[in-house]
């Protein structure tokens, strides 16, 4: 499954009108955190929650992106859209209930 195309980019399209002109390029290398990130912290929270909702709607799975597994990593899965997509794939590969 192409997680970027199916889950993440549609979430960006859904939220873009509420970002007041902020543009988040739909590309794997787009940063989500750090000085180069376009979104502020509230924008990032909204994006994460929207993606979680899309996972439920599209795949019938309930996952928590901001989990202990994510927070304990030395390399944050929220660095870029691409790393976030890889992390979602990893969560979806684990049995339901453990993600």
């Amino acid at each position: 499954m192409d997680t970027l195309e199916r889950l993440i980019y549609p979430a960006i399209d859904e939220l873009a009108p509420s970002w007041g002109g902020v543009v988040l390029p739909k590309a794997p290398e787009t940063p989500l955190i750090g000085p180069a990130a376009a979104l502020d912290s509230l924008g990032l929270v909204t994006l994460i929650v929207t993606i979680e909702g899309r996972v439920t709607d599209e795949l019938g799975r309930s996952i928590t992106l901001a989990s202990e597994r994510a927070m304990s990593r030395t390399q944050s899965p929220f660095r870029t859209l691409g790393t976030l997509a890889s992390y979602i794939d990893e969560l979806l590969a684990t049995p339901a209930g453990d993600a």
């Binding site: 909702g53 439920t56 709607d57 019938g60 799975r61 309930s62 928590t64 209930g97």
Partner: peptide, 14 residues
């Protein structure tokens, strides 16, 4: 029970 609460919310959403 975190998974149970998440499942309840997913069910409400659906």
């Amino acid at each position: 029970d975190e998974p149970a609460v998440r499942n309840l919310m997913a069910d409400l959403r659906r």
